[in-house]
């Protein structure tokens, strides 16, 4: 393969005075599991949100599967894509949120079938059967008819992962998927994510779980103040970091 699945080039983003991303460039290859680590406010979540266009970059470009996201180049100028085109591009990524964001008025099963049926226009029965399989794979077949309020945080997050996967994305984005969980529930979510990684899914994971990063990630990227400080194989970045800032972050976390 000659082309990365995600190519991020010189992406910058400011929120008012605050510069969240400064000229960030990064490649993610198909099948790669990449963990983004760093202190809060370092820009890792913003970078993730730029990839599925919940936030739009001020400058720079992101290519996903060879397609420029959010804008179209024509006659030497960039034109913003329509809402419909952006929605279509989003289908290539699945997003898992820190606070789960399940639809509270729909059951676990309905949360999963919502996208396939009402966005992709697939048949209800077919989508339900597939959703049941996905629920079984995250160990929640018995909870198909439960509402989110009846599920624990860990169960909600597993449903959220199944919901994102139901759209058959080529890239899964995880935004601190275990940060809002009670400590005893973190493991069940990480287990689902590990299985997903071993199935060959391309994943970008913003996380504070360094154990998970060490075990599962191919690449670890350390960010600080909106810039990538260091990136490389997990063992190198976490084991013997070259940069002083990475070293001090890791020693503060562990």
């Amino acid at each position: 393969m000659t082309q990365p699945l995600v190519a991020i080039r010189s992406v910058s983003k400011s929120f008012g005075e605050f510069q969240a991303l400064k000229q960030v460039s990064l490649d993610v290859w198909a099948g790669e599991v990449l963990c983004l680590i760093g202190a809060s406010g370092s820009g890792k979540t913003t970078l993730l949100r730029c990839i599925n266009q919940l936030t739009s970059a001020d400058s720079g470009g992101i290519w996903l599967d060879g397609e420029l996201l959010g804008v179209r180049e024509e006659g030497g100028r960039l034109h913003r894509l329509t809402e419909r085109e952006i929605a279509r591009q989003r289908l290539k990524t699945g997003m898992v949120f820190q606070r789960f964001n399940l639809f509270p008025h729909r059951t676990a099963l309905e949360n999963i079938t919502e996208g396939p049926v009402h966005v992709q226009g697939r048949k209800q029965e077919e989508a339900r059967a597939e959703a049941m399989e996905r629920l079984a794979r995250v160990g929640l077949a018995a909870k198909a008819d439960a509402y989110p309020s009846q599920l624990s945080g860990g169960q909600q997050q597993r449903v959220a992962i199944a919901r994102a996967l139901a759209m058959k994305p080529m890239l899964m984005l995880f935004d601190e998927p275990t940060s809002a969980l009670d400590p005893e529930l973190v493991g069940e979510v990480l287990t689902v994510m590990k299985e997903l990684a071993s199935s060959g899914m391309t994943m970008m994971v913003v996380t504070h779980e360094l154990g998970f990063a060490r075990e599962v990630a191919d690449t670890v990227v350390y960010m600080d103040h909106g810039a990538i400080v260091e990136s490389g194989p997990a063992a190198e970045v976490l084991g013997k970091p070259r940069e002083v800032r990475t070293q001090s972050f890791l020693s503060a976390v562990i």
Binding site: L54, A87, R90, L91, M95, F97, N101, F103, G115, R163
Partner: peptide, 8 residues
């Protein structure tokens, strides 16, 4: 955001 993320 969750609705957008599933392409709505």
């Amino acid at each position: 955001e969750a609705a957008k993320a599933i392409g709505m």
